[in-house]
Design a protein around this nucleic acid. Structure first.
Lengths: 377, 377
DNA sequence: TTATAGGATGAAAGCGCTGTCAATGGCAGC
DNA sequence: GCTGCCATTGACAGCGCTTTCATCCTATAA
């Protein structure tokens, strides 16, 4: 521990060849250095074609010489353009948001925007704070996950005067633009898929219950009710963090209550993976003895053994479309999209972890590895 | 698809009871509303105790009435305090950085700082851009992952005039503060651990090779060389993204070349999980037929079947210490820590995926589930 | 009663940059 | 040689806030 090695008593970090503290260079320093006015330097940096070849070269040299980095704060304040896109997601851990954020970065970075991501940690209050922060930073657009903001959040968003996109889920009263899918329908469809395979005893486990997980659960309950099945004691839920370990634990809890369970619909893939491991541990064969369905179709689903059936949501596409719409508004024609609500749907990706209910003994329907894609809706 | 529902022709998002466009409220608006001067409002917001009870109430009311949100840009420009901590990580996907970022958030958010995280996507150029962005935004401190910055990045950092912390790895020439561990030693120790179990044919797979992965690999090679084993054809590496699927693929590739492999050290846990699934698929028993070691000790390692042996790095602690040091400098006494370099070490967490090399038949040494913790170094 | 803190408030001056408009000068066209 | 245009460049006034210093007023001490 502690192979410490000091680099002398109180070293000054920014020390260069000269020994002085060296205040950060600003536009006027560069200007003086290059023998031009500050405005010219500003132009040389932002619109090089407006400046003569000679002057541009001198300015470039001065910029390098001084290690000049423009002060975005001042720039943004003066130009009223921050080039910031504000994004609030409930989790950075959750694999879903990785693709989602990647889409936003892919779209905005090449256009010179900065994507400022804040994490609400599944807390409405933290979301509120995050939104206030982003608005205070004058983000040029705000993209939030979910449609369940607090009243104050809605007020903040409505008076922010920038485009707002609510994603991941569609609702009836979008604040501005809404692009997502029906979590309820997705939960319903996943359950329906298991019912169609002949299963009746279908459990549901859910962790880190947020609004979306809750709606998926409602979809599950609805599907079960529609099939005339009482599922009251088949549900295991917690607001605690969702992990692979918890998936194993919750599945165990279900199992101790209902040893003859036939299938399980997990609120997300981490839980499904945990359930799968628990089956392996207990010698429960998947899918012969038990079918498992996850949610989100994360990368590892296809690689697990057996590969996990899951519900794929178009998270990349969703974010990409949100980005496009927003960009069109803030830098394009300013036109708002015809439908303020866009439903992107979902897909059930059937894989080896689910099979027809065995009548005789180990009859399997969906061969492992095959990826039958069932269109949603 | 497309359950569109427009809310009228070109709705103005910020419309309130009044029909006018409503420019965003600023300090002077609140001041006028409350019948005081702008400075007083500023004070009421930042240091409420400096303002009389009565005035404070009036201002609060005005703030609410107008939906006023302070303009951080202007605030930061005027006060030269941005309350921004700049962080650059190579990946948001990688489970390692989740805990790392959580530590930073846990520490800084309650102190009123905003943690601005930028993703370099394992690209030195993107890192350079990210750093320039953060410096341009006048982050009050910069925390970067790794010690391998470009020359230009180093120059930028050195002339930024704010504390810099390089993390995840320790090196000889820290820019300012360096807190991490020796990736080389960790790779060496993991390999040594397998050697000590009696294994000789130990493969190594690595994806998304960055500097740290490379050093771990060098540690592996060193350990093998020290044991007098030629491992030239036992290594499988790619710069492509690291995924569970790739772990399975790379392990397959190794297997086709060396069917009698006894153990495998994976550059990270995702690859290890992929290798584990591939073993299950092929009926290779872990650890009886093959030992698997991962790296990072992500959450799912302990829950897998069998649980994965991995190398735990103190990522949360590392970030927390970085945060503390930085905070002390920018808001505390300004004192820099004695050792500019702090080595936090690592731990090998032995679990069921590794066992003594079987002499007879399926002899197992480390019982699955037992978590023997071997101190590093 | 008067001197004197000290709390509460305001006025003015920027923070470092950009938008706007004016000024300069070179050069083609007549 | 003069006019007018275009390409460059510069001056100036803020963007919305905080800092600093001055002012006012009330409460307390002498």
């Amino acid at each position: 521990m502690e192979s410490g090695e000091d680099s002398g008593p109180m070293r000054k970090p920014a020390a260069r060849s000269k020994g002085k503290p060296r205040r950060r260079a600003r536009l006027s320093d560069v200007a003086a250095h290059a023998g031009v006015s500050a405005v010219t330097v500003s132009r040389a940096i932002r619109k090089p074609e407006m400046v003569s070849e000679d002057v541009r070269r001198r300015i470039d040299a001065a910029v390098h010489e001084l290690g000049y980095v423009p002060n975005y704060l001042a720039s943004a304040l003066a130009s009223a353009k921050t080039h910031i896109i504000g994004v609030v997601v409930p989790s950075l851990t959750n694999g879903v948001f990785v693709d989602y954020l990647r889409a936003l970065h892919d779209f905005f970075l090449p256009k010179g925007f900065q994507v400022l991501v804040l994490n609400s940690r599944y807390s409405l209050l933290e979301e509120e704070r995050a939104l206030a922060t982003l608005i205070g930073h004058h983000a040029e657009a705000l993209i939030v996950a979910g449609i369940d903001q607090t009243e104050r959040s809605r007020t903040l968003l409505e008076s922010a005067g920038v485009p707002i996109v609510q994603t991941m889920e569609i609702g009836d009263k979008p604040i501005d633009i809404n692009i997502g899918l029906s979590q309820h329908d997705a939960g319903y469809a996943a359950t329906r898929y298991l019912l169609d395979l002949g299963h009746r005893k279908i459990a549901h486990i859910a962790a880190r219950i947020d609004f979306r997980a809750k709606r998926r659960m409602e979809g599950y309950k609805q599907a079960m009710a529609d099939a005339g099945i009482d599922c009251t004691d088949m549900v295991e839920a917690t607001t605690q963090q969702s992990t692979v370990r918890r998936g194993a634990e919750m599945f165990s809890a279900v199992l101790s209550r209902l040893p003859d369970i036939e299938a399980i619909f997990c609120c997300n893939d981490d839980l499904a993976l945990g359930a799968l491991f628990e089956c392996q541990r207990r010698g429960i064969r998947v899918p012969q003895d038990l079918s498992i369905v996850g949610f989100n179709d994360l990368e590892y689903c296809a690689s697990a053994y057996p590969p996990l059936t899951s519900v794929a949501v178009p998270r990349y596409e969703m974010a990409r479309q949100a980005a496009e719409i927003v960009y069109e508004i803030i830098r394009g024609s300013g036109a708002r999209p015809k439908p303020a609500r866009i439903d992107l749907g979902f897909k059930i990706v059937a894989r080896g972890s689910t099979a027809q209910r065995r009548r005789g003994k180990g009859t399997r329907a969906a061969p492992a590895g095959k990826e039958a894609r069932a269109e949603a809706k």
